[in-house]
Write a protein that binds this DNA or RNA. Structure first.
Length: 291
DNA sequence: ATGGTAGGTGGCCTA
C-alpha cells in the first residue's frame, strides 16, 4: 500500500464530512516536541481531518502547549499533561471531551498517560518509557523501569477495561508503546531480538497484557502479518531511512472487541517522515463506524 | 564492536 493509497479512504471520508456523523477517526502521533512541529501537526490535521489526535512526547509544560494553533483548525477540545523538556501527552478533539484523567505509572508524575471520553468512548494517549540501550534489567535501570511500567500496565489496563465495560463504554488505547511486538513489526526480526523494543521480555509482556485486557490490535486487523508495518525510523540512519526501510512498529491503536467489529479502515501517514525536520515517528489512524 | 541524529536544556540528559 502506498502512502497515497493509504491516504484516500480515510482522508476523503473524514475530510468532506459526508460520513462524519457516522464515523469516528482516531489518530496517534509521537511528535517529539509539539512546539517545534506545531505547523506539521496543523498540516496533518488539515489533510487527514481525524476527529481525535493523541500526541506523545510533546516535550513542553502544560502551560506552554500551543493550543491556539489547533483551536483555529477546529480542534477546540484538549486534554494536556506536559512537563518541561521530556515526555508529555495530549488529546486534541473536534468533539467534546469529558472525564479527563491521568495515571501515574510506577508512582511517577512523568506525564506518560492521559485519557478522556469522546462520543461515549474512552480514549487513552500513552507513552511507554523507551528503556535505554542495554537489554539487561540488572545493569540498566531504564530497562528495569520499562519492564515495571509494562507489568503495572497489565493489571491497570485489565481493570480499566472492566470498569469501562460496566459503565457501558468502549475503550481505545493509543500511543507510543515503544515495543514492536510481532516479527513483522521490525525490518529484521532475528537481528533485533536483543535490541530494546523487540526483546522477548518486552514483546511477550505487551502481547500478554493486550490479550488479558481483551483488546484488539486493530492495525493488524487491516494490515495483517506477514506484511511489514512500521511507524518509526531512527534519526541515526540519516537520509538512508527510506532507502533501507529499517523501521519498527512502535505506535499502536488498540480497541475493545465491539468497537473493533466496527473498524472501517486503518492508515499509516508515512509521508510525514519525508517532511523537513520530521518527527522520527509517523501518525497511525483508525476509523470506526459509530453506532 | 561501535557510532550514527535529534530535541531541550543549561553546562548533559533522553530518545
Amino acid at each position: 500500500m502506498s502512502a497515497d493509497d493509504e491516504r484516500k479512504p480515510l482522508a476523503t471520508a473524514t475530510m468532506h464530512g459526508a460520513t462524519h456523523g457516522d464515523a469516528l477517526t482516531i489518530a496517534t502521533w509521537n511528535i517529539n516536541s509539539v512546539r517545534l512541529r506545531q505547523q506539521q501537526v496543523a498540516a496533518f490535521l488539515d489533510g487527514w481531518r481525524p476527529d481525535v489526535l493523541c500526541l506523545q512526547e510533546i516535550r513542553c509544560a502544560t502551560d506552554a502547549f500551543p493550543a491556539r494553533t489547533f483551536r483555529r483548525l477546529g480542534y477546540e477540545h484538549m486534554a494536556v499533561w506536559g512537563r518541561k523538556g521530556h515526555a508529555g501527552v495530549a488529546i486534541l478533539s473536534r468533539l467534546p471531551l469529558c472525564n479527563v484523567q491521568r495515571h501515574c505509572f510506577c508512582g511517577l508524575e512523568d506525564a506518560r498517560h492521559i485519557m478522556a471520553e469522546v462520543a461515549g468512548v474512552e480514549v487513552h494517549s500513552l507513552y511507554v518509557p523507551a528503556g535505554g540501550d542495554v537489554p539487561d534489567a540488572g545493569r540498566n535501570p531504564k530497562f528495569a523501569h520499562k519492564l515495571a511500567f509494562l507489568d503495572e500496565l497489565r493489571t491497570w489496563l485489565a481493570r480499566q477495561v472492566q470498569q469501562a465495560a460496566s459503565g457501558g463504554r468502549e475503550v481505545i488505547l493509543t500511543g507510543d508503546l515503544n515495543v514492536a511486538p510481532l516479527p513483522d513489526d521490525v525490518w529484521d526480526h532475528r537481528r533485533l531480538l536483543r535490541v530494546i523494543t523487540h526483546t522477548p521480555m518486552e514483546t511477550e509482556r505487551l502481547e500478554t497484557l493486550r490479550a488479558e485486557a481483551g483488546m484488539v490490535d486493530v492495525v493488524r486487523v487491516r494490515l495483517p502479518v506477514p506484511e511489514k508495518v512500521f511507524t518509526w525510523w531512527s534519526y541515526r540512519a540519516g537520509d538512508a531511512w527510506e532507502q533501507h526501510d529499517r523501521g519498527r512498529r512502535l505506535d499502536h491503536v488498540w480497541s475493545t472487541p465491539e468497537l473493533a467489529a466496527r473498524l472501517e479502515d486503518v492508515a499509516i501517514a508515512r509521508e510525514t517522515r519525508s517532511w523537513p525536520r520530521p518527527s522520527d515517528h509517523v501518525p497511525v489512524l483508525a476509523r470506526f463506524r459509530r453506532r
